[in-house]
């Protein structure tokens, strides 16, 4: 990199040409990804093969069922519509709980983050409630809201609330005073400060809170369903177990794992876009 009198360096970042070296690197990257995918699929196949082999030979299928039985059960659920029936119920409760919890968590976290005095006063209560395992509230919510979807939404919302609340609170307080001063000197009032510094600065924290709470929203809904319900994947799992139907139990777990992984992957993509200003890792 040479620096000229005019003060300009030859900027290596500016040029985006596809040189042979760049193409070679892209090709190598492609091969690496393919190998990774291959390795991942191979591990899955090996695990399933071991499971299939062990079932009936090493362990009683009563306890571990077998992959073919599990997939047969999944297929049956898909074809007879029971998967859509139960999954839609669980996802609906999850989404509703997430939305309610996230909105409340953001609003209250923002309020307390901006008000030092109020935050100091309520701090011990927040800590106490935070330390409470939220799942322990589920029976109470079922008593209050009944065995319908409201109690699942409540369990899910209360878990999400705390995660989003704490992250928003931290994010609002983490604002860099250098940025605040810069905006004030340039003529920004408190409204401009809020919109141009505090909210974007807190966004990274808030987003992290949202991201970690999505799987918990699912947990909340499923736990609610397992305790008392007549619908949903949680209900399906607890009912199957009660009837010693191991294949159905595993099928329900597979559905939850796939749903959880899908949501996570989507969130990762969204995060990459929303927080693209962050230093490339």
């Amino acid at each position: 990199m040479s620096v000229t009198r005019a003060g300009i360096a030859d900027d290596p970042l500016a040029a985006g040409e596809a040189t042979p070296a760049a193409r070679a690197q892209a090709a190598a990257e492609g091969r690496r990804r393919l190998a990774l995918l291959g390795a991942r699929v191979a591990i899955g196949v090996i695990l399933l093969a071991c499971w299939q082999f062990a079932s009936g030979r090493l362990v009683d299928p009563f306890f571990i069922s077998a992959p073919d039985a599990v997939f047969a059960r999944l297929w049956q659920w898909i074809t007879d519509g029971s998967l859509v029936f139960h999954l839609s119920y669980t996802l609906y409760a999850t989404a509703l709980g997430f939305t309610v919890g996230a909105l409340a968590g953001f609003a209250i976290g923002f309020l307390l983050g901006r008000s030092e005095a109020l935050a100091t006063v309520v701090d011990p209560y927040i800590t106490a409630i935070y330390c409470l395992p939220k799942i322990a509230l589920a029976p109470l919510f079922i008593m209050w809201f009944g065995i319908g979807i409201e109690s699942k939404v409540a369990v899910s919302a209360v878990i999400v609330f705390f995660l989003v609340f704490l992250n928003t609170f931290a994010g609002v307080r983490d604002v860099n005073p250098v940025h605040v001063n810069a905006v004030r000197i340039m003529g920004g009032g408190s409204w401009a400060l809020l919109r141009k510094v505090i909210l974007p600065s807190a966004a990274a924290w808030v987003f992290t809170g949202l991201k970690v709470s999505v799987p918990y929203a699912l947990i909340g809904a499923v736990v609610g369903e397992m305790m008392s319900s007549n619908r949903g994947i949680g209900f399906l799992i607890s009912q199957s177990t009660a009837m010693f139907d191991t294949a159905s139990t595993f099928a329900g777990l597979v559905v939850l794992a796939v749903v959880g992984a899908t949501i996570n992957a989507a969130l990762k993509r969204l995060e990459r876009h929303v927080l693209r200003w962050r230093a490339p890792a």
Binding site: V178, H179, N181, A182, I185, V197, P200, A203, W277
Partner: peptide, 14 residues
């Protein structure tokens, strides 16, 4: 005044 600080005062999300 315009104030240029020693530390980075650019807004990282802009």
């Amino acid at each position: 005044v315009g104030y240029m600080t020693q530390v980075d005062s650019l807004l990282p999300w802009r």
